[in-house]
Nucleic acid binder design. Structure first.
Lengths: 217, 217
DNA sequence: CACTCTGTTCGGTACTAGTTAACACCCTTG
DNA sequence: CAAGGGTGTTAACTAGTACCGAACAGAGTG
């Protein structure tokens, strides 16, 4: 956090300015500027702002090199599927009553239970817990596929959360249409009519979480 | 110059965060945040920095009027993080009750609220819904990091579900230790003492879903 | 030598960042 | 209805620090 002083000195010398010069421009005392640069004191936002303007630098640039993490394409994890289709109204009940041996469910990609929900639409269960009305799954939409074959919107109790892994997924919730890219996420009240579609030309996958009425403790 | 408070409020509400929530994340008092937003006080650089990270906004964006629009063509998604740590007992309450403008929350990778939970451990919220005790997030464990600095196991009500995106994550639940690779997933009762650690030498990320006792409706 | 530039350090003070109240308001719940 | 959650706002106070002036050590000049 003191690198702000370090960065400040760096930029100042880059500009060929002396400490006193910059201090005068910013109307602070040279001593104070020195203290700042050496991490012995911290400027107020106002003086920091002055510095950034005087040096022609983004304030954020004074906080040191910004490091960011993120997202690596995910290597495809394939799974075995059970090709089965079911009529359902509430997705949170699809796998519901799972027999669980212990209170921990750990599933390898090769051993996920799977469902074909519609043409090109697959659901793979990611965990089986004793919780009722809760589903944690990986979904996959082939290009051109839609969550309901008929194209009608679905409504059910509970909430739904999603994170797009790859591809693009068009989400229609209520009146609104969003296009989710990899890395984007959403959450919404499932009682709002909704439907998903893959309008792109590559398969779209995501991590989805659906839970219905919360089963009381 | 007080527009910094104005902008702050603007961005905060955009993110669907309540004043108290943001205050808690930045570990300042709600009253102080209110004073800042109303131009009656000014934050220190440190707290300003926290805000910018928590809200996923450039510090400079907090000064001027919001003139910028979507940057983000295709450059891969990066997320902003914070430098903040919070005491918590139940992870499902960290971001809890957010004031939500509509019933749909859609979040871009660049705009995720984030928390540093422990050394090298980051949580990024993936959706803000009115649901209490529900958290949908992306977690990231730096090599060598552990979910609790002290190394003690956590216990809280509710259930927890996870999917590993990249890297390797060692999961200890109850007496058992598992090593999750990319693509593997799990679910378990959070009342079982648990702890996570990244024993590998690359960062480990995953999609996590934690919900406490399901409340209401 | 005196003079001028560089940046640094030591005390001190005036100010303010941040706190803990208590406040008013709106919703739900019982 | 009151009780209890949520929301944001304000007042009074204090501990800390942002910032100053002065006095410092060098390094060039001439």
């Amino acid at each position: 956090m003191n690198n702000i002083g370090h960065r400040l000195k760096e930029v100042r010398t880059e500009r060929g300015l002396s400490l006193r010069e910059l201090a005068r421009m910013a109307s602070v005392s040279p001593s104070f500027l020195s203290q700042i640069e050496n991490g012995k004191s911290q400027p107020s936002v106002a003086t920091l702002y002055s510095f950034s303007k005087l040096l022609g630098v983004q304030i954020d640039d004074l906080f040191g090199p910004s490091e960011d993490d993120d997202i690596v394409p995910e290597t495809g994890a394939q799974a075995h599927e059970i090709t089965e289709r079911s009529d359902f109204t509430n997705p949170s009940q699809v796998w519901n009553t799972s027999e669980y041996t212990n209170r921990i469910s750990l599933i390898h990609p090769d051993h996920r239970a799977a469902l074909d929900m519609a043409e090109g639409v697959k659901w793979q269960r990611l965990a089986a817990t004793p919780e009722a009305g809760v589903n944690f799954m990986k979904i996959s939409y082939a290009p051109g596929s839609t969550s309901t074959a008929s194209g009608e919107m679905l409504t059910h109790e509970g909430y739904e959360y999603g994170y797009v892994l790859e591809g693009e997924l068009e989400v229609t919730v209520g009146g609104e249409v969003f296009s989710l890219q990899a890395g984007q996420s959403l959450g919404f009240d499932s009682s709002i009519p909704h439907i998903f579609a893959n309008r792109g030309d590559v398969v779209s996958t995501g991590i989805w979480f659906v839970h219905g009425v919360c089963s009381r403790k």
